[in-house]
Design a protein around this nucleic acid. Sequence first.
DNA 1: TGACTGTATGTCAAATGTGACATACGCTTC
DNA 2: GAAGCGTATGTCACATTTGACATACAGTCA
Lengths: 105, 105
Amino acid sequence: MEKAKKDRLKSAGWRVGDATEFLELSAEEAAFVELKLALADYLREIRVRNEWTQSQVARRLGSSQSRVAKMEAADASVSLDLMVKSLLILGVSRSEVGRVIAKAA
Amino acid sequence: MEKAKKDRLKSAGWRVGDATEFLELSAEEAAFVELKLALADYLREIRVRNEWTQSQVARRLGSSQSRVAKMEAADASVSLDLMVKSLLILGVSRSEVGRVIAKAA
DNA sequence: TGACTGTATGTCAAATGTGACATACGCTTC
DNA sequence: GAAGCGTATGTCACATTTGACATACAGTCA
């Protein structure tokens, strides 16, 4: 995994169980995290494309600016449920969500 | 929506806010629930295909038989996170997960 | 019939996720 | 440099999800 991505994960609050200085994720954990990163990027893309602020998106979702920021950062405290529901509410189709998830990193 | 699917949702614990006798879901809620149903079906398919019992799958996941049963039933108490993580642990690729999610109902 | 295996369903304490808030940061404009 | 706007980050009370357990249900075999 490239360094930039690792740093991004680290700063997003992903923890590692061992004492090494590298993020040591199992293949499944890595796949899950990358999947979340893809959704996070897409969420931001949709927002920027529509020229919305995070606060405006939050209002649409019935959430808060800070949570939207965390979603876009793929913060460890946000669930896949929240991200997928958010995309659907913002008008993204189920099949498009699937495409985003399937897309190779 | 066809009746069989509605019954399945109802018995899976999905609630409806109004007093009508039909499940009244917004388009986004419906898409989300169907997405979960697709994952639930796929989860069972993987298990059956490999001739595993729910208990065996539970052990692999570090979970319990009852939770696996709930996953396969797309119970309202199970998260997308749990379902997706489970599929990944069972060896399903990220892109295959995407395909399952994207697949039209 | 009873024993056994596998699945479904209800409950619960503990773990995790939530919106909201405060506040920090970065940038632009005056 | 102060004010304004948008985004990031830490915290918290409250809500939801979790594995585990008990138990019910369905099928098979002897």
